[in-house]
């Protein structure tokens, strides 16, 4: 497969997402969120937010805002059936809100193997900025690709 340390430093395709109240409410509904500050604009404003705040893991959606966000993996020869999300990290710099346009700029920062190549690790870091180019959060994702039985090296 095409996963090798030579990818370190490679920029992946970035993406932008205009964060809407509607999308944040769907995220809230799907995660069982009861806290009104993530659902009700008046409640958010009473808590000194300018609008509905972006919840801690929603930033991950920014990087997925592409027509086919996993294509870069299949282009590298990765079988998506062998793909696992190993780790995920967010560092927060400021709070984002509905109405913000968030843009991620992912860069591959590490590629390594374990268990004699049975597991390949792909680490990507992606700063997320708002419409004023102010850093809002930094995402760090570790994907794990298993070597499936019968797959060629």
């Amino acid at each position: 497969m095409g996963l090798s340390p030579s990818l370190i430093g490679t920029a992946r395709e970035g993406a932008s997402l205009l964060v809407t109240r509607s999308r944040l409410r769907l995220f809230a509904k799907s995660t069982g969120q009861q806290d009104p500050i993530f659902i009700d604009v008046d409640a958010a404003r009473r808590a000194s937010h300018s609008d509905l705040p972006v919840p801690p893991t929603f930033f991950f959606a920014v990087g997925l805002e592409l027509p086919a966000p996993l294509d870069f993996l299949t282009d590298l020869g990765v079988d998506l059936a062998a793909l696992l999300h190993g780790e995920q990290e967010f560092t927060y710099h400021r709070t984002a809100h509905a109405g913000d346009t968030l843009t991620s700029s992912p860069v591959i920062t590490d590629v390594f193997e374990k268990k004699g190549g049975a597991l390949m690790f792909l680490v990507t870091e992606a700063p997320v900025v708002d419409q004023d180019d102010v850093l809002v959060a930094t995402m760090r994702e570790t994907l794990v690709v298993r070597q499936l039985a019968g797959a060629g090296a």
Partner: peptide
Amino acid sequence: ARLLTDNFPVESLRSYRVRF
């Protein structure tokens, strides 16, 4: 993350990471 924001204001979060 809901456990976190149920107990701390969302703006007080500095970092958050998990291993699946």
